[in-house]
Amino acid sequence: MKNKSNRQKVFIHILLIGGAVLTLVPFLWMVLTSLKTMTEAVQVPPIIFPERFRWENYEKALSILPFGKFYYNTIVSTAWRTIGQILFCSMAAYAFARIEFPAKETIFLILLSVLMVPGQIFLIPQYLIISKIGLLNTVTALVLPGLFSAFGTFLLRQFFMTFPKSLEEAAILDGCNHFRIYWNVMMPLAVPGLVALAIFTILAGWNDLMWPLIVNTSMDKMTLSAGLASLQGQHLTDYPVLMAGAIAAIWPMILIFILFQRSFVEGIAITGTKG
């Protein structure tokens, strides 16, 4: 019996390691290629390790494209989107979950209907708004529509609804107004939900492609994602440099993930079970 369950465990590990290898090979190949010379990269049959690590590929990638600007635009716009959503969504979610007011259900349903519509439908009018108020090629353009989220409001409302009524009754007796209850009582309790929304928003902001591609066409206002796509579009076939550029764009997110993996995994699970 013991033997059988041991053999089963080994079998499971073999399957899981196989899957993990398939997941990791593209990453490893990206790193290895980024450290080769072009001649080494196109050698047939391929060699796995370069003779010497060519860090100069990274210098080259960073000099072809204004990566400093890309980092700035991506980090600043992602940060604003995240802060905005956390604040605005949680405020609205609190009101929808804890206060009775006229037309509550109707307003909530209208906002929720946004979730039913594929995001691309909004793009042309959003683009025209941004263009009319003269915000094309600005970081503000990257932030604006992403400040508001029906998904985030819905997710946090689910959170706020689970708290017992007695929570705010005590606070009301103490003479707290709704903003105080929301900020001092509810927000600390909703931290897991806020973290989940933050992770969701950061991932979406960092990796988004179509919106930045549309609103910001000048190189110094592009995000990492759009900038990298332009590198690809230039028919550049210097693969080591391309891979170096790709790594330069993805390492911050991977680092954040590895540092906060518990929060990531729990956050994604929360959006899956509560959303």
């Binding site: 899957g19 993990a20 997941t23 990791l24 593209p26 990453f27 190949w29 990206m30 991932l203 960092w206 990796n207 492609l209 990492l224 994602s225 990298l228 796509a229 690809q232 391309l242 891979m243 550029g245 790709a246 790594i247 764009a249 993805i250 997110m253 991977i254 954040i256 993930f257 590895i258 993996q261 990531f264 995994v265 994604i268």
Partner: peptide
């Protein structure tokens, strides 16, 4: 963690590699 890596990787970079 390993299996989740592609989910935090930019689609542009995934497409390139």
């Amino acid at each position: 963690t390993l299996y989740f890596l592609p989910a935090v990787t930019m689609p542009v970079a995934i497409a390139m590699v």
